[in-house]
């Protein structure tokens, strides 16, 4: 719930300088995704801003979203997803899949 608030805060903080897709921030810390659930609107392209706060690299991977991207330690990456149908799209950190698990909920 706290995270949901954080996301909303982040969304609001993005000033509409350009009419780009909505941005969602995802942090990787101790091989976990924060938040581990992201809710995005259906049929909309969104931009995931993934920050890897660990020293080790991680690979954002989702078979359902058809995305794979390696994020080096202590760095950031941008991943576009969507437009998507309603549903649940799991993603995981390929390098530490036991802990780094999350899902995108499209509503």
């Amino acid at each position: 719930m706290r995270y949901a608030l954080l996301i909303i805060a982040l969304c609001l903080s993005i000033t509409p300088v350009f009419a780009g897709p909505p941005v969602f921030t995802l942090e990787i810390k101790e091989h976990l995704f924060f938040p581990d659930e992201i809710t995005i609107p259906a049929n909309t392209k969104v931009k995931l801003h993934v920050k890897n706060l660990d020293a080790t690299a991680e690979e954002f991977e989702s078979y359902e979203l058809n995305r794979e991207k390696v994020i080096a330690g202590n760095s950031e990456a941008i991943i576009f997803i969507g437009p998507l149908d309603k549903g649940v799209y799991p993603f995981f950190g390929e390098f530490f899949p036991k802990t780094a698990q999350g899902k995108v909920i499209v509503e």
């Binding site: 690299a57 991207k69 390696v70 080096a72 330690g73 202590n74 760095s75 950031e76 990456a77 941008i78």
Partner: peptide, 15 residues
Amino acid sequence: NLGAVSMAWDGMGQE
């Protein structure tokens, strides 16, 4: 150098 590559071209360097 993946980190640097990733952030090139508006974050689309790796792709």
